[in-house]
Design a protein around this nucleic acid. Structure first.
Lengths: 224, 224
DNA sequence: CGTTAATTTGAGCTATTTCAACCGTTGTGG
DNA sequence: CCACAACGGTTGAAATAGCTCAAATTAACG
């Protein structure tokens, strides 16, 4: 259950250090360590539990909890550019797993980035902005979960994903099971919601993992 | 829709400045402005929309959104000691309202606290800790919303509240309607869940707004 | 190709929403 | 001081939505 490879940036992704991934300031880029993970592998840096700030560079990951009854809840979905470990460290039983292969994550020691942030206001500002983004993601998640019907939840979820791609086409890195655990629904309900959304012309399924969002929210449609 | 009174700390709460409310470091306490609000009144400092960091000192407030269809969603419940305005500022349509009378909130200009934080690491640390608390609250909220049954949601909600009081007795500042909007349920379901929780001996209702939590989680009971 | 995992579909059951009415409290104006 | 409106809370009944168990179908991968 260890990363298949844990490499210096220069070894794993020569371009990452030289040109930068674009996700963090150059100043931080230099001290990052890239690690590559495979599907369902836990993401952490060996040796220390909560001492790292991490940014997903490629692939996808999700932060989740498993309940005492065996149920799993996905608290946050992490796509390239998303980070974790700065906020939400003390939550009990929270862990991060890769959900596709390969998933590449950049790890930064908190002690280091804090030292840099202390003397570089630009970096400090960047980190605060990252925290705000994480909070915004959590709030969007809450809003999603508060929607009444499963169709609304699934549609809202797909809409958020499609907003992160240029066109409406989505490459789903995440399985129906993960979506179910993210939305607090059963897999069957997620699947049915998908097919029904297609039936109603709101999405187009070009395969289980290829979705294109088409229309306006389900909420507006049900209102009409 | 303006605060009934907007006072210097020394005028409204003589003790707040001298002894401190205990919620923020002395260094910050000095620059805070206390404002008092009545139920359903929007909480903001006149003149600037998102330029303040605010801490609830007494009473209670909730951060909410109203959807296009008229539904309201409560994103965060703010009890004495909880803060808002640092994270989650850019969310669209988000506003904070007092949910009981009186609700007292301390406002701090962001420009000021950032300046202080820049030269006082202790204050900076405090602010980071506050952001982590806010995120932890959001995560707990997500986990609550992901619970499958309404009883689990309501019980989890009450349990979180009771964890913030010394004994298990809760003084509910929040109405059933607010709870419903917080948990993404209808009012009727919340009410029914309450009476059923009492029927099953998990809580004791000493009046609509006085609840005492008794047993272990509903989840464990349903498992048995 | 064959095996395994992922997704979809079906049927019965339970939970939740919705619409409606009722009760108790509070506050207000006559 | 009382009647009455307004609000918060509870309860009832019908319709719907979602969960569970079960199985079929499809995609992924060695």
């Amino acid at each position: 259950m260890l990363p298949s490879s844990k490499l210096r940036s220069s070894e794993a992704m020569p371009n990452a250090t030289t040109h930068g991934s674009g996700f963090v300031p150059d100043r931080l880029e230099a001290i990052g360590r890239l690690a590559q993970y495979t599907r369902s592998m836990e993401i952490h840096v060996q040796g220390d539990t909560a001492e790292n700030w991490s940014v997903v560079v490629a692939g996808a990951a999700c932060q989740s909890v498993v309940r005492t009854d065996g149920r799993r809840n996905v608290v946050d979905l992490l796509l390239p550019g998303d980070d974790f470990g700065l906020l939400a460290t003390d939550a009990p039983g929270l862990s991060v797993h890769a959900i596709c292969t390969p998933t590449i994550v950049a790890h930064y020691r908190k002690s280091l980035i804090e030292a840099i942030a202390a003397e570089d206001p630009k970096v400090a500002l960047h980190l605060r902005e990252r925290m705000r983004e994480t909070a915004a993601r959590l709030i969007r998640h809450v809003l999603l979960l508060q929607k009444t019907t499963a169709k609304d939840k699934v549609w809202g979820f797909l809409k958020i994903l499609s907003a992160r791609t240029n066109d409406g086409e989505i490459q789903l890195a995440i399985s129906r099971y993960d979506i179910a655990d993210y939305l607090g629904l059963s897999v069957e309900t997620v699947s049915r919601a998908m097919t029904e959304l297609q039936f109603r012309g709101r999405i187009e399924l070009r395969g289980p993992r290829r979705v294109k969002t088409l229309g306006r929210p389900v909420a507006e449609q049900t209102a009409a």
